[in-house]
Design a protein around this nucleic acid. Structure first.
Lengths: 183, 183
DNA sequence: GACCTTTATGCAACTAGTTGCAAAACGTGC
DNA sequence: GCACGTTTTGCAACTAGTTGCATAAAGGTC
């Protein structure tokens, strides 16, 4: 139940239309809370109905017409409440680990190429994060907001680093097993 | 769409009833693919309907009566197919990172105590994983299946290690910011 | 043998997220 | 002025996961 709060955060950073939000979700916020445009439009409607955001007056509120939103004081209050509230971590779900566990029973045949693909994807993501870090977080400058944003980015970088290392290790293991089988 | 495959894996490791599966999901497999008993019962019904598993003959198939399942050849084949198939990683969703990003806009007030709680939870999980590693993976013994299972466990250990370190870092940052505010 | 708790199974309603498609306005070339 | 693609918004149907509750048998207890 965090999509509305992801949207509130994004709108506080900068008032936007549905499509602009979608684009921004594809970059920054979506890295750890992805959402499709349909989810976003639906949620914008709800948030407006609840009086947490409002559409900026833009003359013709017609379909296919750009409509920008800004956060109302009630929305900011709700976001602050949610941020401070205690929340249990969501139960984990990772299909790749599950597949490896299944492979322990039915064999690793065919798994390797997908491990390699995932390794490449995580490597790309890592490179992207590092580029963002260099661009947006030069040493020296640090407001409180910057420090927190950097902290979030570091989590992304460290997680991707973990995955690339782990996948490299997993690939080596699979190859060793496959060699043993065919030898 | 991986729950059926998680169940097939668990049943291949050992034929079980719905409740036994639920218990095992709370321990091993559930660490990276959690499921409630309702999900499991529903899925067992579907898998049986699809001819991938079958109920072991147990006389009275009444309600409130233990009913165990085993995997049929078609089920094993489906699991092997799924394991080898290429799959895109699921988009990430992490509420804690989102909250930190929100805190960059609305302030960190109240966040600290929950960070501390999460740190404690991850520490506990890490200790549990390490205990499993000591118990189930003594050095020396290694069949192919064991090596793969160990690899999965290592992922869990390294991830929890990452989170405890990152949370420690995040807490320090929050405290520094709070001190700066009140000073 | 009436009552309570535990074990085991399951239905139904709800919430969140995904997929596929459509429709209104706008721009551009002709 | 209209045919055609693009941008922007949105509905509807579907899939997956969660929550709350119901039911049946088994076993203890007084």
């Amino acid at each position: 139940m965090s999509l509305p709060h992801a949207i509130l955060t994004a709108l506080l950073e900068k008032p936007s239309s549905g499509l602009e939000l979608t684009r921004r979700f594809d970059r920054s916020i979506g890295y750890f809370w992805s959402a499709t445009h349909q989810q976003i439009y639906r949620e914008l409607g709800k948030l407006e109905g609840d009086g947490l955001i409002r559409a900026l007056p833009a003359e013709q509120p017609a379909r296919g017409q750009k409509k920008s939103y800004e956060v109302l004081p009630a929305g900011r209050a709700e976001l602050a409440r949610w941020t401070a509230a205690s929340q249990d971590p969501k139960p984990q779900r990772d299909a790749l680990l599950l597949r490896l566990r299944a492979a322990a029973v039915v064999g690793t045949a065919g798994l390797e190429s997908d491990l390699r693909r995932h390794l490449e994807l995580h490597g790309k993501q890592l490179a992207e994060y590092r580029a963002i870090e260099e661009r947006d977080f030069p040493p020296g400058e640090d407001t409180p907001a910057k420090r927190l944003q950097h902290l979030v980015l570091r989590a992304g970088i460290d997680l991707e680093t973990f995955w690339t290392q782990w996948l490299t290790h997993a690939l080596a293991e699979c190859e060793a097993l496959a060699d043993g089988t065919t030898a």
